[in-house]
């Protein structure tokens, strides 16, 4: 029983931040809202998405996402709306642009370089 309680507490963290009045009646829209929320970074917490943050701004953004979904906006349009106001910081995966190219290519570059040195050494 204790184990079950612990498991329930552990897995219920996702529900803890979302307040009952925020949840949409339409299950499909609510599912999309959660998926969008997981892609947006909370602006005042370190590396937490808005879906799982207790911060005031995260709550406001969750409400905004749901409002825009009710206006029939697509997921892309909603993410673009938030991105236009808060910049790259709000996105967990920054867009691929000339100035963000390093972020995407450096890890792959390092990985390839390591493989190259590894095989050179084996020879």
């Amino acid at each position: 029983m204790r184990l079950l309680t612990l498991i329930l507490i552990f897995f219920s963290t996702n529900l803890m931040c979302l307040e009952p009045d925020e949840i949409l009646d339409n299950q499909n829209l609510e599912k999309r809202a959660k998926q969008i929320g997981q892609q947006l970074r909370c602006l005042v917490c370190q590396n937490e998405d808005i879906q799982n943050s207790n911060a005031d701004i995260a709550k406001d953004l969750r409400i905004l996402v749901r409002k825009l979904l009710l206006q029939n906006k697509s997921d892309k349009e909603i993410i673009k709306f938030v991105h236009e106001r808060y910049g790259d910081f709000v996105l967990f995966s920054p867009p691929l642009r000339l100035d963000t190219m390093g972020l995407w290519l450096l890890p792959a570059g390092f990985f390839l370089l390591m493989i190259f040195f590894f095989f050179r050494r084996q020879k």
């Binding site: 602006l43 005042v44 701004i57 406001d60 409400i63 905004l64 106001r85 808060y86």
Partner: peptide, 13 residues
């Protein structure tokens, strides 16, 4: 009252 104008201005605190 609902913080939506603040979001429009990119205010986070």
């Amino acid at each position: 009252h609902d913080g939506m104008v603040s979001i429009n201005w990119g205010v986070y605190g």
